[in-house]
């Protein structure tokens, strides 16, 4: 008796539905998305499915993208601003494989931009959809661990605790020390976690012409920001909200208005600051902008010649 029947190559191909999710799951996610859009900033519970990668690696964003993507779409995926890091590459390949998706690295060409922890530097346009991967959708969770309580706080707009937290920050350190996932008030009603984007990106959400969708796979929540919606970073009259600034421009493209990452370049303590948005930086270098360390970075192989 043969225990193993050989499987032919064709039969071994997995027969997934378009964009991996089954149609009933897509309907459930689509209904949640519509309610999320109707109540901006409110977290809609949804039946998060098991995906072929671990929860916490962007399964919320992937499920939203899978529920909205179609043959006309062009998908861009970024991880901390970069198109070429692990999370971005594997998610892009997932949709190329399961949805035959057209992909791009150019922000202005994309119709759907799935992102982990950044908003691109290039201004978003009407008709584009941002999909955020969210690890912790509940902005009040660190202040109140009980879901039953945070739900009531949102229901009754009891947000004093958050103001107290920001106040204690100022009392102790002289300023609000939260630098990412900085809480925002949506449409004057719900406090929302903008996902762990740097507070540098918060002003880009305010009145953005693009639709912004947020998915938390492990925490099973979906929320949304329609275009042209007010997004206010919480602050005090005498301590207004401020974004980060740097003493030097990008070392590769000399941009003075983008979000910079610190990169350690040797074991002697040398470091440089470069744009976190890789496509923005490359586009500027192609346009002839040259930063102070571009020549060094090219000769040591950190930046490819073709990107000059």
């Amino acid at each position: 008796m043969t225990l193993h029947t050989p499987v032919t190559q064709d039969a071994a191909q997995p027969a997934y539905n378009y964009a991996y999710l089954d149609e009933q799951t897509k309907r459930m996610i689509r209904r949640a998305l519509l309610k999320a859009v109707a109540v901006p900033g409110y977290q809609v519970p949804f039946g998060s499915r098991e995906m072929p990668l671990a929860r916490g690696w962007g399964t919320g964003g992937i499920q939203i993208t899978a529920a909205i993507i179609g043959p006309q779409d062009r998908l861009k995926v970024i991880d901390q601003g970069a198109d070429d890091t692990t999370n971005a590459v594997s998610i892009r390949r997932f949709f190329e494989k399961t949805a035959n998706a057209k992909t791009t690295e150019a922000t202005d060409e994309a119709t759907i931009i799935q992102t982990r922890h950044r908003i691109p530097e290039a201004p978003l346009q009407a008709g584009q959809i941002m999909v955020y991967q969210v690890p912790q959708p509940e902005p009040l969770r660190k202040l109140e661990p009980r879901e039953a309580e945070t739900r009531k706080m949102h229901a009754w707009a009891e947000y004093g605790l958050m103001q107290v937290k920001l106040y204690e920050n100022i009392a102790r350190f002289g300023e609000v020390t939260t630098t990412y996932d900085y809480p925002v008030l949506i449409n004057g009603r719900y406090i929302m976690a903008p996902s762990p984007i740097p507070k540098f990106d918060n002003p880009k959400m305010h009145m953005s012409p693009a639709l912004q969708l947020f998915g938390a796979g492990r925490e099973k929540r979906i929320y949304a920001l329609p275009p042209h919606t007010s997004v206010k970073s919480l602050d005090f009259d005498d301590h207004p909200f401020r974004i980060q600034s740097w003493n030097e421009p990008c070392a590769l493209c000399a941009a003075a208005d983008s979000y910079l990452d610190e990169v350690v370049i040797d074991d002697q303590g040398k470091r440089m600051f470069v744009c976190s948005d890789s496509h923005f930086c490359e586009t500027r270098r192609e346009d002839g902008h040259r930063g102070a360390m571009l020549a060094d970075a090219t000769s040591s192989g950190l930046v490819g010649e073709s990107k000059l």
Partner: peptide, 16 residues
């Protein structure tokens, strides 16, 4: 699959 995807995007745009 594709008719419901197209219709959903229209409804999403309508409510957004």
């Amino acid at each position: 699959v594709f008719q419901s995807q197209g219709a959903f995007r229209a409804i999403l745009a309508a409510l957004a």
